[in-house]
């Protein structure tokens, strides 16, 4: 308690609320009195921000699906080439990664041919959205990791899973019979890639996710990084995939990357100019 004198205000909080309410009511009344007004009915803007540009509504057709498939395959090639450049892989892993590059390039070429067969222009570059939003920060985290080899293997598994999920989805969406068959074949190949990477890296421990029925906490390694498994789910999942990678920060927290199958922001539209 203090001996300070208590000062009183002429207007209390209730008075202020009343006054504010009266002002709003009066403004509403005056606004309602206006009739036949014309002009822009968009919400008002404050400050000097540039006007919002309407995005073009580009069509998504068979060629867009296949161009996007090519772009993901070539993104995988770029990631694996970067992994080879690290010099961290032993001979067996180098052989495996070289084979993965070969397979992804083969699928990319096939998707390119199919793009042209449905009247589109083959896409021969990586996917700019995935490269800037996911791959570049992910590779930076991996190179800075306290266990880069583990992160490389987990990255490869996620990459294969997302590529397989994309092809699994496209196999249903594509109307062209050849294209649908080719994407389903790619989904199987990349599912096998993913399963083999884990099996070769972890042996029998990595065969089946013990949480295949979805109960309990995800098993993690000594550093708290979730394990990957050859068979994560009973059915082929097309949901997003999480990847924990990189060195822990001062709080012991590692970066989590969320990777999803392509959507509106990552399709390779027919109108998109090559980025390579």
């Amino acid at each position: 308690m203090t001996d300070q004198p208590i000062t009183t205000s002429r207007y209390g909080r209730r008075d202020a609320l009343k006054l504010g309410g009266l002002t709003v009511s009066a403004a509403t009344f005056l606004a309602a009195c206006g009739a036949g007004r014309t002009g822009d009915d968009a919400p008002g803007r404050i400050g000097f921000a540039p006007p919002i540009e309407e995005l073009e509504d580009f069509p998504i057709d068979e060629a867009v699906f296949l161009r996007t498939a090519s772009s993901l395959e070539l993104t995988a090639v770029a990631v694996y080439e970067a992994v080879l450049d690290t010099g961290l892989l032993d001979d067996d892993l180098t052989t495996l990664v070289e084979r993965l590059i070969e397979d992804h390039q083969m699928v990319a070429d096939e998707m390119g041919e199919l793009t042209e067969s449905v009247g589109g222009v083959a896409w021969e570059c990586t996917n700019p959205w995935y490269m800037s939003r996911t791959v570049e920060p992910l590779l930076a985290a991996v190179l800075d990791s306290d266990n880069p080899l583990r992160d490389i293997i987990n990255t490869a598994v996620v990459l294969e899973n997302i590529a397989a999920a994309t092809h699994q989805t496209l196999a249903i969406e594509l109307q062209d019979a050849d294209a649908a068959a080719a994407t389903l074949a790619a989904a199987k190949l990349e599912s096998r890639h993913s399963a083999a990477i884990v099996a070769l890296a972890r042996g029998a421990e990595g065969y089946v996710n013990p949480l295949i029925d979805g109960d309990g906490d995800a098993p993690v390694d000594a550093d708290g990084v979730p394990y990957k498994f050859s068979i994560m789910n009973r059915f082929g999942s097309t949901g997003q995939v999480e990847l924990v990678a990189g060195a822990p920060d001062e709080n012991g927290v590692r970066q989590t990357f969320i990777v999803q199958t392509p959507s509106l922001n990552s399709w390779i539209y027919n109108e998109l100019e090559p980025t390579c």
Partner: peptide, 16 residues
Amino acid sequence: ASIVVVEARMATVLTH
């Protein structure tokens, strides 16, 4: 499609 891709994985696991 969601069955095929896991059967492919099972074959790979068994091969290993």
